[in-house]
């Protein structure tokens, strides 16, 4: 930003950020530290947060988010590699296939899977018709993981793919030239250089997985409560904005911690990668 005049271009976003990011955050902090009854300062809301039930939900959320992030990496990396190695003409079609679901509404997609996975849903009807045992996945944590992977996988593929296509092919060739097998070349050169993509993919999968309540609601049958569901309950069913805000702050803490960790790795990665 050399020119002062350019700064004004950021003004619309500044207004946006103030209205929809800063003010809500301030309100969350305000609610979290005030009593629902008296409206005065209190830490009591946090007592309701540090209970077994909420901590269990938080633990489960972290666990499921971690598992789905891992699955996403394992699925996305080979896919991104295949994509990056393709000719442009073939590539655009495949990329299109992957992006296609992203154009459909997120809720709609998840609803669709609910219908598909139901006890008497489409998939089990088909399985039954060909005398296979039914798939009993709906309303289990695995259904939630499935939903997370399905919804967030493209966000893992794209950043990895983006890094891989920008990778200088001669750097990879140089490793081969110096005697490395394709396996050694991958672990010593390609993978380390693609870490910035993996890390931004992790950010884009882990955080939405950690905070989701729609996927667990629809595919967990309302029986499996993640931290997102607990917060939603506080706000909408129990009408307790104060405890809800306190929970949000705890969740926010985790989001910030994971962002900081990822940012740190991303920086060291990026500085050397490109």
């Amino acid at each position: 930003m050399k020119s002062n005049r350019l700064k004004w271009l950021a003004a619309p976003y500044g207004v946006w950020a103030a209205g929809f990011i800063i003010i809500p955050l301030v309100m969350i902090v305000f609610y979290a530290f005030t009593s629902q009854e008296t409206g005065g300062f209190t830490l009591a809301n946090f007592d309701d947060v540090f209970t077994g039930e909420v901590m269990k939900a938080l633990g489960l959320s972290l666990g499921l988010a971690l598992v789905s992030t891992l699955i996403c990496i394992l699925l996305a990396y080979p896919l991104a590699m295949i994509l990056a190695g393709m000719k442009v003409s073939q590539k655009s079609f495949i990329v299109f296939i992957f992006i296609l679901p992203m154009w459909m509404n997120f809720l709609l997609r998840t609803f669709a899977w609910q219908t598909l996975l139901e006890k008497n849903g489409v998939i089990n009807t088909v399985l039954g018709a060909i005398n296979l045992p039914p798939l009993e996945i709906i309303n289990t944590p695995w259904a939630i993981v499935f939903g997370m992977v399905y919804n967030f996988l493209p966000f893992m593929i794209l950043p990895i793919y983006n890094v891989l296509i920008k990778l200088d092919q001669d750097v990879v060739n140089a490793a081969r030239d110096l005697g490395a097998s394709s396996f050694q070349t991958f672990w010593k050169v390609t993978f380390p250089l693609s870490l910035p993509g993996v890390i931004s993919g992790v950010t884009m999968v882990f955080i939405p997985s950690l905070t989701t309540f729609v996927i667990s609601d629809l595919l967990g049958g309302g029986k499996i409560l993640l931290i997102g569901n607990m917060i939603e309950q506080e706000f909408k069913q129990l009408n307790n904005w104060n405890v809800g805000s306190a929970m949000s702050m705890i969740l926010l803490l985790f989001v910030i911690v994971s962002m900081v960790v990822e940012n740190k790795y991303d920086k060291t990665g990026e500085g050397t990668a490109l």
Binding site: D168, V171, N173
Partner: peptide, 11 residues
């Protein structure tokens, strides 16, 4: 090979 654009390992 010494590549035209050096192709050093940046990491």
């Amino acid at each position: 090979t010494v590549f035209q654009k050096y192709a050093l390992f940046p990491h």
